[in-house]
Simulated scan of single mutants.
Amino acid sequence: MKSKKIFIRVDASYEIGTGHVMRCLTLANLFTKVGIDIMFICRDLPGNLNHLIVDRGYKLYVLPCPITDHQSTEFKNPYEDWLRVDWKIDLLQTVNIIKSDPSTSCLIIDHYSIDSKWENLFYRLTGKKIIVIDDLANRSHFCQLILDQNISNHNERYDGLVPKSCVKFLGLPYVILRQEFMVEKINLRKRNGSIRRILVFFGGSDPTNETFKTIQVLKNPMYSEIHIDIVVGDSNKNKETIKSFCNEEPNFYYHCQINNMAELMGLANLSIGAGGTTTWERCYLGLPTLTIVTADNQIEIIDLVNNKGAICHLGESSNVTPEKIEQELNFLIQNPLKVTKMSQRALDLMDENMINSFIERVVDSINDTD
């Protein structure tokens, strides 16, 4: 029987962050469990997670780091320069890899820089089906399936952006969660609003260094009895400075590129962190959170979740001072009922997880081509 192979085109960098690769690794694990071989195609960008992909046991094809910095003259997609090369160069390099393995079944794309012009030409050159992971709904796609795990005020946000025949998996039922979160949810303890343990995590790269801003607040002696977990990604440029500082504080615990985030979230009474995909992990486990937006694409999601009462949003990183963090943290410490309500509303926000139905539909799509 011919093996089923899926390539995933995705990048991580200091600029892009690590969330796209991390969620694709979760999908890769789910596909592997049903007998699909997964290969990654990633560019060698500063701050990438290519080593992590290899460490997880997946085949990786590395696209070369551009020698000169590419600046796009087109502005339809503000994220287009994240490819760091002209889109046609990126496309042709990807096509050459796909054509080198004739058993390839389809391509999954999780990249803000790629849109329908890239996808359409890819399909014409390879004939392979395309599946898109997106959460912006800001550009057109040529694909057979699309997955957007975010909630939105615009239920028809992809109408006119994808072919009418495209199968859409939209909303919180399709949040991409690692198995560790499912396991943690089973034994999740009910929170009583008391804040004795705080989890700080601002994503894998934390480009605005919100972690250290938050540390400056939490080092206050008034928080010395609180257990504080500081989590950073391997792509965090300031990780060594953060590590050194944590080592000087007896109630601070430093973690880098961990595999037990669900456990730490389950143990925490409060989180301080950014928006992005981690938002849904926290909500799934009912973890109350003080949030700081660190990227424009987080704003709509955080506003929606804040309006649901599932988080306490502090604002955009450039406007959030250590004093603001301290003020809101003290308010929550003094108001356990507020913390309890946040936890319950976060839990209520999340529907039954149905990501496996997406996996099954992709497998069926692959089988239809045999």
Score class of each variant (00 low, 15 high):
I242A: 07
C166E: 12
V232F: 08
C143W: 02
I272L: 12
T321N: 09
I325D: 05
L83W: 02
V34I: 13
T208R: 10
S140N: 15
D81I: 04
N335G: 11
I41R: 01
I272F: 05
T294K: 01
L290R: 00
L125Q: 12
S365R: 10
K185I: 02
P322C: 03
I333H: 08
L30T: 06
G35L: 06
E240R: 12
D115G: 12
P102K: 07
V175I: 14
K190I: 14
T208K: 14
L329G: 04
V132F: 05
N269W: 02
F358Q: 05
A346K: 00
T279K: 03
I299Q: 13
L91Q: 00
I195K: 09
F31Q: 02
T94N: 02
N356K: 13
N155M: 15
R189T: 08
N150M: 06
T208C: 14
G17L: 04
Y254K: 12
N297V: 01
I302T: 12
L136A: 09
V167F: 09
L136C: 11
K308G: 06
G276Y: 02
E225W: 10
N356P: 10
L92V: 04
G275A: 05
A274W: 01
F40S: 03
V21L: 12
F202D: 00
K76A: 14
V85A: 03
S72N: 10
T18V: 00
N260D: 14
G309F: 01
R196P: 02
I299E: 13
E300H: 10
D351P: 15
D234A: 14
I98V: 15
I299S: 08
L136D: 07
R197S: 15
I130P: 00
N236T: 04
A346R: 00
N29E: 15
I109G: 03
I359R: 02
P221I: 06
N251I: 00
N150K: 06
S271F: 03
E80A: 11
Q144F: 05
M265Y: 04
H313S: 03
I130Q: 04
Y174N: 07
P46K: 02
L188T: 02
D159R: 14
Q71F: 13
E240D: 15
I311M: 08
L172E: 00
G286K: 00
F252C: 07
D101R: 06
I130H: 03
H51Y: 12
I258C: 13
F252P: 02
V320I: 09
F142I: 04
N335F: 05
G193I: 01
I272E: 05
K168M: 09
S235V: 05
K341Y: 11
N330T: 02
Q149T: 08
K33D: 15
I301D: 03
I97G: 09
L337V: 11
S194E: 15
E326N: 15
F169L: 05
S317Y: 07
E300Q: 14
N150P: 09
C166L: 09
R178V: 07
L304D: 02
N187R: 11
I299L: 14
S194Y: 13
N153L: 13
I131D: 03
W280F: 11
A12S: 14
P173A: 10
S194T: 12
L314F: 05
D368A: 12
L45S: 04
V85G: 03
E248N: 13
Y254L: 11
S244Y: 13
G127N: 09
I215G: 01
C312E: 14
I109A: 01
K117W: 06
